[in-house]
Nucleic acid binder design. Sequence first.
DNA 1: CCGACATTTCAGGAATTTCTGAAATATCGG
DNA 2: CCGATATTTCAGAAATTCCTGAAATGTCGG
Lengths: 189, 189
Amino acid sequence: MKLPPLVQAFVLHFGEMGSRWGINRTVGQIYALLYVSPDPLNAEQIVEALGVSRSNVSMGLKELQAWNLAIPKHIPDDRRDHFTTPDDVWQILRTLAEERKKREVDPTLSVLRELLMQTPGSVEERHAQQRMAEMHGLIEQLTTWYDDVKKLETERLASLLALGARVTRLLEAKDKVVGLVRGRPGKEG
Amino acid sequence: MKLPPLVQAFVLHFGEMGSRWGINRTVGQIYALLYVSPDPLNAEQIVEALGVSRSNVSMGLKELQAWNLAIPKHIPDDRRDHFTTPDDVWQILRTLAEERKKREVDPTLSVLRELLMQTPGSVEERHAQQRMAEMHGLIEQLTTWYDDVKKLETERLASLLALGARVTRLLEAKDKVVGLVRGRPGKEG
DNA sequence: CCGACATTTCAGGAATTTCTGAAATATCGG
DNA sequence: CCGATATTTCAGAAATTCCTGAAATGTCGG
């Protein structure tokens, strides 16, 4: 691997973190490399930069494309595929959230739904089902919120983030004034 | 593994998902089992329920404790350690977020900070640093928001979630009325 | 259809992670 | 301190995941 020191450090870090993020080292490194690269790179350039096999790069790029984290960019008069990462970091965040939800949350949600349909055959199963219902409720609430928030444009999302928890205070104030929660007064004393 | 069908299905699912969550099968299964169990379980009971080795359970429990996802419960007149999961699913969510942040985000944040301190030695490094700065900015904003929000009690967090993206509309309305953003008028036309 | 080049597939070896059984350590009542 | 019981450690076996090189497949201009 022959890369400017700064880039190399970044790439190596992403490789190491890979396992914690549920991707493998090469995939992490390829992503990092594409992310900081000023121009789209082709597979051969990645091979040279990272010192891994051509086939490994091919598989890594395929996985990154499945994650929508590497996008092919055609370079005129060049038959080889070139790749970049989406350049807007907010878009990357959305993509990441979407894909992780799809892979890590949705399957569990559907299993929970299925199990909650069944009739418990014992006290233990009855209790287990109650716990599953709690988990299901939480996940459903989170995903509903997520589906809702992901539609926001970057600018609004950003300003919402910037507001942080202060948002509650604002809402409470507003609650009192406008009677937002359908006539009920504010909750806190 | 001899478990009521409902429980078994749940446990097996968590085992399978384990790899996607970055934990191993046994750890996932132990967690699932404890989660749906009406009473705290000791290591031997887990061994019997899951059909894995005693030592594996020991290691699994240790890891879950490191994640604060298994908590020891002392049973009177019994020398053996018994374990449960925290019962409030919201608390579990917080714990999970906290631990994942610590393991998956913080190291990257500190690497980024370090690399951003260095002086770039070429145009490529200059560009790479700019990209890193973008990533750093995003992560920092997210963690600031997270630090802020995690202090909210469950009830407020829940009602904030329930509000979802509608929160922006409320804020815009309020913005216009109260002049929240320090005298600036609302942004959209 | 051919030849040149680009990419993908895939069997099997390498590396890593997980799991086990045996031994070591810890903790308790007496 | 002893014996009984509970837990942890850890070396190596088992399982899984990752990576490579070779072969197959795809794609283009001519």
